[in-house]
C-alpha cells in the first residue's frame, strides 16, 4: 500500500517537484526488486506522518 498526502498539506520544502505524486514510488513495488516486499505500507509523504 502506498500512502500519499495532498501536496498542500506538506509544510516543508522537501523536493517540491515531486510533491503529491506517488507514481514514481510505486515503480519499486511493481518491480522485480520487490519480490520480498509484501504486506507493507510505504508512506510517500515527505515525512508528514509523525508515527
Amino acid at each position: 500500500m502506498v500512502c500519499n498526502r495532498p501536496a498542500t498539506s506538506v509544510p516543508t520544502a522537501l523536493d517540491a517537484a515531486h510533491r503529491g505524486d506517488p507514481a514514481r514510488a510505486v515503480e519499486l513495488l511493481l518491480s522485480d526488486a520487490a519480490s520480498y516486499i509484501t504486506g507493507v505500507t510505504v508512506p510517500v509523504d515527505g515525512g508528514w506522518f509523525a508515527t
Partner: peptide, 27 residues
C-alpha cells in the same frame, strides 16, 4: 533484491519518501 530496494530509496524517484521504515521481509 534487497540491494535494489535500497537503491530505490536512494533514487530520484524516492524524493518524497523520508522518515519511513521499509520492511523487506517477505511478509
Amino acid at each position: 533484491d534487497f540491494g535494489r530496494a535500497v537503491a530505490f530509496l536512494c533514487s530520484s524517484s524516492a524524493s518524497f519518501i523520508t522518515g519511513t521504515t521499509m520492511l523487506i521481509d517477505g511478509g
